[in-house]
Design a protein around this nucleic acid. Structure first.
Lengths: 248, 248
DNA sequence: CCAAAAGTGTTGAAGTTACACCCATGC
DNA sequence: GCATGGGTGTAACTTCAACACTTTTGG
């Protein structure tokens, strides 16, 4: 067994990130297109992810990988869990791809999955590193992914649902200024069910995390909506005592 | 980079298990005492855990390790998450211990933590493998543990709290036949707060998972309690549709 | 003036909380 | 007969779900 140097990539441990973005209409996921490689396949989309370095912790690794692959920085990131089936990388097209990018493509790899929430508008994507393109795909249109990434995506969706019910993390997905209708649509997208408009508004107003801006939408062909922003100070205050259930 | 053989231990990935047991009075955790080794230290207690094999999945590894270290089999097991700080094994006494049991004690190790619920009575513990003893320690008395195991324990307690609020897993901790008072005390132990007796009873009765046995406690110096068992069929039925909130 | 989305209150049902006394047994 | 924990109901309050119409703007 060779002694590991500190700054080596660890051949057995990776991170993968499920990055959610909201385009004010629907939820999207950030995926890496392997299609330009010579091993094109039907399901050439993968979650951004890579092996970790021995000297970085898991969170750091997730941040680094995301930045390297997509340019995203300073984003909300939370661990989903570890996925480590010995045969998670055994699909033929996945193995071929691995052989083209990894020193040790046969190694057993356990991946630590993260989910991440970003304001889509803040991140005009630039491709980099070995990934040809990073692209946003609507969650609802995704039917398969590389490796076990589809399974990871399912887990991410469940985690996000659970989390957003008790913690106001949805703001990470919205622009600075947003309307209650946009927030409403966001919650419906995540929870994948309709929410009564009036009840929803009452509830979010009561949680006291919205700061009304006394500005309105402009140039919309209907009654313009009030704009709000997220009240960061109130959030910090509430965070100390632990949030109460938002109960959607 | 050496090619890995399938049945090797993977030097970089371990599992650790937080095993909860309930003695009808309080919650306990199953710990491994390293105290017999020559490197005795103040905090010589550790969670049962070990490196995984390259051919087993994470759940299997957790089962195997638990069985090897403690003799426990066929138990409720759920992943908590991955813990992978590069310096999680850097305490002096931990390193000495690792050197005595591992081929490659310097390797970066990410551990996948699990929590597990067992009926204490079913498992008279027998020590085995490299662990000298497996012992039950009341959760409330644990103040430090080896490596980052104390941190893992905290995460396990939080997970258990969250889970038991929405899923009836508490039965895994009780004997076949139990009283409502025992169930009550169990929930109070896990949630670490008092629950109103009448409201608790009403609620658990309503969830329809209890089968009254029409037997009573015997030889108790007070009014004997009705005994119940967990209704497995009802559970399967409810599990299909998804449980509703138990809301403790 | 029309189309489109914004905004707003009430009511009935369900669920949650708080609370105090009698009961059956062993000793 | 007494000490111990077992077992039970109700009332006030809070939360939740369902539901329809008026408003403001752009075109």
């Amino acid at each position: 067994m060779p002694k590991k140097k500190v700054f080596e990539l660890n051949p057995n441990i990776s991170v993968d990130c499920v990055v959610f973005g909201f385009d004010l209409e629907k939820l999207n996921i950030l995926l890496i297109d392997r299609g330009e490689s010579q091993f094109v396949s039907n399901n050439s989309l993968a979650l951004p992810g890579d092996l970790i370095y021995n000297n970085e912790n898991l969170h750091q690794a997730a941040y680094r990988v995301l930045e390297e692959l997509t340019g995203l920085k300073n984003i909300y990131l939370e661990q989903i869990g570890a996925f480590g089936d010995p045969n998670r990388i055994s699909k033929e097209e996945d193995r071929l791809w691995l052989e083209s990018i990894r020193d040790n493509p046969e190694a057993r790899v356990v991946t630590i999955a993260y989910f991440s929430l970003v304001k889509m508008e803040d991140y005009p994507l630039k491709a980099s590193s070995f990934a040809k393109k990073a692209i946003w795909i609507p969650v609802k249109e995704i039917e398969k992914l590389a490796f076990d990434h589809f399974e990871i995506l399912q887990a991410a969706k469940i985690k996000l649902k659970e989390k957003i019910k008790i913690h106001p993390i949805g703001f990470n997905l919205l622009p600075e200024k947003f309307t209650l209708s946009q927030l409403h649509k966001l919650y419906e997208s995540i929870l994948d069910k309709e929410l009564d408009k009036r009840n929803f508004r009452r509830k979010v107003q009561k949680m006291n995390l919205l700061k009304r801006l006394f500005e309105k939408q402009e140039y919309v062909p209907h009654k313009p909506s009030e704009l709000y922003k997220f009240n960061e100070e109130k959030y910090q205050e509430l965070a100390k005592n632990g949030f109460n259930n938002f109960g959607f």
